[in-house]
Write a protein that binds this DNA or RNA. Structure first.
Ligand code: ZN
Ligand code: ZN
Ligand code: ZN
Ligand code: ZN
Ligand code: ZN
Ligand code: ZN
Length: 1117
DNA sequence: GAGTTTGAAACT
DNA sequence: CAGTTTCAAACTC
């Protein structure tokens, strides 16, 4: 505790000696006492407040700061998760964090990715910050600088995906250089690789597989598996995984062999966790201890900022000064959870004492300003007022920074801000003026634009000027037609060049001045790359005064299009304007911003009249923009990068990060371990308990078992995000509805959702017409090659062998001998239709042309001629939603497949004249959907949900109507009874009939007045009913109209008609009874036949009256 | 049962 | 056009 008494501000009634403050829990743990030299009561109150503060929902530990480890651990570095949009506003988050017992993501968590395109936003702001800092520090930020910084960042990664090379690491790295755990996929740092933080040891690898380059066993790094990057998990000693030990023997125990996996109890990871746990427990057992440092405190603090107790504990852990009653039922701490520690002993200190006291001191320091009474103020971070003050301070600082940034990044002339377009927009200016004391912000895109691949360069006052060849100014060198038309000029140019009369005009690097050819000429580009070499005057020198003055300058500018009018540079503006065709906006005082301003720069830009400076490709929809520097870089390096990828040393062919795990001579291993082979020479490896489909000795037995297994096999899914309406769902894929065996959530693959389900089926069938067909079929060309046709007919086994997966598989890592492989899953051999690698499922049988033939009973079939020619052997296809087909063409002896596509709008004409794809859809509509027009082939979940809600609503309406009708009928009956009887009473009163004494009795009580009342009531009811009916019919009509008029509207279904729904319902019922055509697993299992019949009777009546179906209609009985 | 690996499906 | 990301199952220990 290093609190200095003299740090307390004066004016406090009492000074607390925090130096000797300590805590002690009593036995019950319900009250804490505080001993020391302080005023115990006051301190107690303070700290009690503070205690409750942790669970009272106010600001708490999150606001103080997360352990970066935990932030990283929570925040999903992996690219994919970034799209989950975890909100900093906890209340907005609906997403559950699997690493925190599926609790909601807390606030203050930013999910940022390292990898993947989804990282763009993060990268920009981060990079922007970096550049800004750089600019402030070095007083310059040239293109060279930006490129260098980019390269620096990229060089940290082993990821050689050329797209990924643009990706910057998220803040995780900058915040202490720590990768989190529990992230998915992470770029691989060079240092990690070089220092062998991973599971493999390069040297061992090399010694076991001499002269072999590192080959990735797994291309994907899963941070779950390794704690790499996190200093806590950098092992001092590593232990080989058992797998490695078994393969390479005792040497695996050497240092730096393997970090192993979490599951490996001998792995470094496990050891580390054990050590950690032990150390933690040791500490926890110290009596009356208080938490040591912040890390420890965080380590045992719950994710909810509440206080943890073990659920089994009868009383709070007396070791901690925790009083909160709410704290009794909190989840295991995230760190313990994350560390795989047991759930016990989770009693929780909150802030460390040191931190608490520091906070208190802080508050005390703030007291006079904030008018805080330290005796009653929660001294935890939940001190809202204090925080508010701090936040205000921060905001002011940020605003100041923002201003500086904006000025720094902006040109002296006021640069063109394509993204934000605020500069010339008077209204926006005024708005900003008010908001920011008159200062403008640079737009985000502008600020971000300092980097390559982005939009615009800012103009610094003394930033490198580009020397442009005057001969090019005003000329359109890059335009061939120009040259052709002006042959004379061309000659002139050549002459100029010959005479060496090239001269330069200085123009700025400002965005809009990125004229077509000049700026992008090699000379200029090179000069941009080396701005300080030849022209020392390019050196940026901005003083603080300059920055302060710049705003005034800027405000005096009313118009610019990026041409630096404020700089006195020598150039031919007339020619520039001609070249740029800027006539329309060359007048000064023209607005830049504002879409409504026809003369504005943005409007001009929208007309494709603006050009990009070298290397920047943003700035809107510039259809004739130049390729960005980055794009060029990619293009230029593509060959190299592709070859790197195809060599696949450490990089993935997927975007999952490459990394070697372990490589060994599999064959040697198999041989030396005496792994048996089958008659085809395949190694029989019993990992999967399923013998290979190629082991024909046991094939029959296998297949028999298979069939049995399949018969017993319950197809059930566990889908969570797709409503069981995508092919991901096994039930759906098999054309089945989900059953009660499924554990899916939010499932729409049920009868109640039949319409929505059919919608999904339509969409998918549009894409994959055979999506719900069998995936396996005979290969006719193979069958034909069996000479003995009669034998083929008779030989079921042979027929089975001729079955093949229609599309073939694409397995890379499972050797087609696990159920990952669709061929293996289907129980068929791989064929030449497959693109699998290292196939052990039959494709590689035979001595030659491995992978390009199929072996049947020892006989090879291969199109030798085409194979030898290197012709296409197999094509992987993937259909997209718009009828385009992505093709990956695999050719013999070609490592790199050729990727192309068939476009829907290609010139392929159907024989009857139409487009072949259009015709396919028309045919499908006619054949499979009774001529009904198929809508867009994509569907959204919300679309389905809306549709279902609509139906449900409709159903409820109808139900109301039905009830109303029933009620009405009842009343009419009653009325008729009364009325008729009343008449008869009047007419036949004298006859004294004895019928219906009760009625007579009641009727006799009715006066004429009563009857009139009832009449009036009935009229009212009838009136209301009429209105209702009218409304109902209008609704129906509206729906039908909508439906008919919106064939292209995704939000409407063609069959969204009430009568259709009725048909569906009846059809369902019939089918349910006959158990024909639908899968009613879920329902029949719970319903005996009798109750179904009863249900049907009820349903028929109800369905005549109502329009829609509901789960309960089918399930209730 | 929890965590990891996998390749097809989906998406842009 | 050429990828990246999502997904739920299969798999491992
Ligand atoms: Zn499902
Ligand atoms: Zn299911
Ligand atoms: Zn389901
Ligand atoms: Zn396969
Ligand atoms: Zn296959
Ligand atoms: Zn295969």
């Amino acid at each position: 505790m290093s609190i200095q008494p003299n740090q307390f501000i004066s004016g406090l009634e009492k000074q607390l000696d925090l130096q000797n403050l300590s805590f002690q829990s009593n036995a019950q743990g319900n009250n804490n006492s505080i001993t020391g030299n302080c005023n115990a009561n006051q301190s107690f109150n303070i700290f009690q407040n503070r205690m409750s503060g942790q669970s009272n929902g106010k600001m708490s530990i999150d606001s103080v700061g997360y352990n970066p480890n935990l932030i990283a651990g929570l925040s999903g570095i992996g690219g994919a998760d970034a799209l989950n949009n975890i909100s900093p506003d906890k209340s907005q988050n609906s997403i559950r964090d699997p690493y925190r017992n599926n609790s909601l993501y807390p606030s203050q968590i930013e999910r940022k990715t390292i990898g993947g395109m989804s990282n763009i936003e993060n990268r920009l702001s981060e990079y922007q910050d970096q550049l800004f800092d750089f600019g402030l520090q070095n007083q310059r930020c040239s293109l060279e600088d930006t490129l260098q910084m980019t390269a620096n960042r990229n060089s940290q990664f082993q990821n050689s995906s050329y797209l990924s090379n643009q990706i910057y690491q998220s803040n995780r790295n900058t915040n202490g250089g720590i990768f989190g755990r529990f992230s998915s996929q992470v770029p691989c740092l060079n240092s990690m690789y070089n220092n062998n933080f991973y599971s493999d040891d390069k040297s061992i690898l090399q010694s076991t597989a001499a002269n072999q380059p590192l080959q990735p066993q797994s291309y994907r790094i899963n941070v779950n598996q390794f704690g790499f990057g996190n200093p806590q998990y950098i092992p001092t000693q590593t232990v080989a995984s058992t797998q490695m030990q078994s393969i390479i023997g005792e040497s695996a125990l050497a240092d730096n062999v393997s970090m192993g996996t979490q599951n490996n109890s001998a792995s470094a990871m496990s050891l580390e966790v054990q050590n950690f746990e032990k150390a933690l427990l040791d500490q926890l057992e110290q009596p009356n201890r208080v938490p040591g440092d912040i890390a420890e405190q965080f380590a045992i603090t719950s994710s909810t900022n509440q206080v943890n107790y073990p659920s089994s504990a009868s009383a709070p852990n007396p070791n901690f000064y925790n009083l909160s009653a709410q704290a009794q039922n909190v989840a295991q701490s995230q760190f313990r959870f994350a560390s795989g520690l047991s759930a016990g002993n989770n009693a929780v200190p909150l802030l460390s004492v040191a931190q608490s006291q520091a906070n208190l001191l802080n508050i005390l320091n703030q007291t006079s300003k904030a008018n805080i009474n330290p005796e009653t103020t929660n001294i935890f971070s939940s001190d809202a007022q204090t925080l508010k003050l701090l936040q205000q301070q921060q905001q002011q600082q940020q605003q100041q920074q923002q201003l500086q940034r904006q000025i720094l990044l902006s040109s002296g002339s006021g640069m063109v801000d394509i993204g934000g377009m605020t500069f010339g927009n008077v209204n926006q200016q005024q708005l900003l003026q008010q908001q920011l004391n008159g200062y403008q912000h640079a737009s985000k895109s502008t600020a971000a634009s300092v980097g390559p691949g982005l939009s615009q360069l800012p103009l610094f006052d003394n930033m490198p000027m580009v020397n442009v060849k005057t001969e090019n100014v005003g000329e359109n060198e890059g335009n061939d037609s120009d040259k052709t038309e002006k042959g004379g000029q061309k000659e002139q140019k050549e002459e100029k060049k010959q005479t060496g009369s090239t001269s330069y005009a200085s123009i700025t690097r400002g965005a809009a001045f990125s004229t077509k050819q000049e700026v992008y000429s090699d000379d200029i580009f090179n000069s941009l790359l080396n701005p300080f070499e030849e022209n020392q005057d390019r050196q940026l020198s901005i003083t603080n005064d300059d920055i302060n003055n710049k705003f005034q300058e800027k405000m005096s500018l009313t118009s610019n299009i990026g041409i630096n009018r404020s700089l006195n540079i020598n150039r031919d503006t007339k020619k520039e304007n001609e070249s740029l065709n800027f006539n329309e906006i060359k007048q000064e005082k023209e607005s830049i911003g504002g879409l409504s301003d026809l003369g504005s720069a943005i409007n001009f830009q929208n007309n494709n009249n603006m050009f990009n400076i070298s290397g920047f490709n943003s700035g809107g929809n510039l259809s004739i923009q130049r390729a960005s520097n980055l794009t060029n870089f990619k293009n230029n390096n593509r060959t190299t990068l592709i070859s790197r990828l195809s060599n696949a040393t450490r990089n993935s062919d997927l975007n999952r990060i490459s990394f070697p795990t372990f490589d060994y001579d599999q064959k040697q291993f198999l041989e030396s371990n005496g792994i048996p082979r089958d008659q085809h020479g395949n190694y029989i490896i019993g990992q999967s308990n399923r013998s290979s489909a190629m082991n024909s000795e046991s094939l029959m037995q296998d297949e028999e078992n298979e069939r049995k297994k399949k018969a017993e096999e319950i197809i059930a899914c566990n889908c969570g995000k797709t409503k069981c309406l995508k092919l991901y769902c096994v039930c759906f894929q098999q054309g089945l509805m989900c059953s009660d065996q499924c554990r899916c959530t939010d499932c729409y693959n049920k009868i109640a959702y039949l319409e929505e389900r059919e919608r999904a089926i339509k969409a998918i069938k549009l894409r994959y017409p055979d999506a719900f067909e069998k995936k396996v079929n005979f290969l006719p060309e193979l069958a034909r090659k069996i000479e003995d046709a009669e034998r083929l007919d008779a030989d079921l086994e042979l027929q089975n062998q001729l079955l093949a997966h229609k599309k073939g598989c694409n397995c890379k890592k499972s050797a087609c001998k696990k159920k990952y492989c669709e061929c293996y899953l289907a129980g068929v051999k791989c064929t030449y239709l497959c693109r699998c690698e290292q196939c052990q499922n039959g494709k590689n049988d035979g001595p030659e042309n491995q992978g390009q033939h199929i072996n049947i009973e020892g006989q090879n079939f291969v199109d030798q001629e085409n194979y030898n020619k290197g012709n296409v052997v197999s094509i992987k296809t993937q259909n997209n939603t718009f009828g385009n087909i992505k093709l990956e063409v695999f050719r013999p002896n070609q490592q790199q497949q050729f990727i192309t596509k068939i476009e829907r709008n290609s010139n392929q004409q159907h024989e009857n004249g139409g487009n072949i794809e259009d015709q396919r859809i028309i045919n499908m509509e006619n054949d499979d959907f009774n001529g009904e027009k198929l809508n867009h082939s994509r569907f959204t979940y919300s679309e389905l949900e809306n549709h279902y809600t609509q139906r449900k609503k409709q159903k409820n309406n109808n139900e109301d109507m039905f009830d109303s009708l029933s009620q009405e009928k009842q009343q009419i009956d009653q009325f008729d009874q009364v009325f008729n009887t009343g008449n008869s009473v009047n007419q036949q009163n004298q006859e004294n009939t004895t019928d219906d004494q009760n009625n007579n009795q009641r009727q006799s009580e009715l006066t004429n007045e009563d009857i009139q009342k009832i009449r009036a009531q009935q009229e009212q009811i009838y009136h209301e009913h009429q209105q209702q009916q009218l409304q109902y019919m209008r609704q129906q009509q509206l729906m039908n109209n909508n439906n008919n008029n919106n064939n292209n509207n995704n939000n409407n279904f063609n069959d969204f008609q009430n009568n259709k729904t009725e048909e569906h319902d009846l059809k369902i019922e019939n089918n349910q009874l006959e158990n024909n055509g639908f899968d009613f697993n879920s329902f029949n299992q719970n319903n005996n036949q009798e109750s179904v019949v009863v249900s049907r009777k009820n349903m028929q009546f109800i369905n005549m009256k109502r329009g829609a179906t509901d789960d309960n209609d089918f399930l209730a009985n």
